[in-house]
Write a protein that binds this DNA or RNA. Structure first.
Lengths: 183, 183
DNA sequence: CAATAGTTTCAGAAATTTCTGAAAGTTCAG
DNA sequence: CTGAACTTTCAGAAATTTCTGAAACTATTG
């Protein structure tokens, strides 16, 4: 694996983005490198290619492992561990999404529910609770919906996305053919 | 406006989440406070309620203004500026989403396109380019799709979300009624 | 116009996050 | 078993981000 300007620009940018998606810049860079590498890479080489310490690589790979985004590969005749990214780009996106839901959404929804169950002590809290309920409802809907979308195949989801907001028209269309409650 | 344990727990949590959604903890806390406050709040009071400096409030409000998430309110007989969050919870979510697209997605897609147009110099780059193309395609699809969903009304979008992955069945249903190309 | 109220900006301090490299720990080969 | 290869962990250093509070700036009032 060679570090070329093309790969370097990708790795750098992806690293910046990583910190927006749930892991720090270096972890993002390690992951980017593994995503675009056809061959598994050992930790020492990652350290060399990215210009970071071997210890930092170890910690980064541990983090990526906790997200289940990378896997260890053992080569015959090699004691070193090699790493590569797991699954398709689609699988990766799913994993990141799933892990963020667990780490951010679920605790948030849980806290919002606790607050909603409290008794409002004054008008300030009553209004706050009303707003918090709205936030909770929206986040819950979005979370459940995106979760259900995960059960679709990549192909079917792609079809859905190509339909765009035309989905609204599909909903109207199906309404016309729905049998009336009382004819 | 009183800072009660209920409101404080919300503000603290939301602040932590803010750093995952594009702005720092304190900016997130300022915003959380404004979201759950029925009345506009002046900068001095925000500083007192959150226990932060007046200068920090000023900078945070400036950031929230750049996201178009808050608005200034002028009261008759008052020289101070008051702030409140803009729009419904739904509007807020839309704004955050839109701004993140501009700040993160658009530059990412732009960079990925640049890389895709380069000539691969070796096998490493060819494979990297293939992967980058897949990432680009997926991100582009998701971005365009979510953008088109923004053109739906909250009610219609809510209906869609309640349908969940049943949307896949709707797609099959409409396929059955689509006129054949050559009958 | 001068004084005051109010806001913004920014240098440097403070807080937080990330990193290094060596110690600690684990595994393998001879 | 010992030495070497390999990995992990962590104390403290380094880097980065955030914050403070005072200077700079703006607007209003008498």
């Amino acid at each position: 694996m060679q570090m070329t300007p093309m790969i370097e620009s990708f790795v750098c940018h992806f690293g910046e983005m990583g910190s927006r998606w749930g892991f720090n810049r270096t972890v993002g860079q390690i992951y980017a490198l593994l995503v675009v590498s056809e061959q598994p890479i050992c930790a020492n080489e990652i350290a060399e290619l990215l210009g970071i310490s071997r210890g930092n690589v170890s910690m980064g790979l541990k983090e990526l492992g906790s997200w289940q985004l990378v896997q260890v590969i053992h080569k015959q005749g090699e004691r070193r561990e090699f790493y590569q990214s797991r699954g398709s780009i689609w699988d990766m996106a799913n994993r990141v999404f799933e892990e963020r839901r667990k780490r951010e959404m679920d605790p948030t929804l849980s806290l919002l529910r606790d607050i909603m169950m409290d008794e409002a002590a004054n008008n300030d809290e009553a209004y706050a609770q009303k707003r918090i309920t709205e936030i909770h409802d929206l986040l819950e809907n979005i979370t459940e919906w995106t979760q259900s979308l995960q059960s679709l195949s990549p192909e079917k989801l792609n079809t859905l996305m190509k339909l765009g907001s035309g989905v609204g028209k599909v909903l109207e269309f199906t309404d016309k053919f729905r049998p009336k409650k009382d004819a």
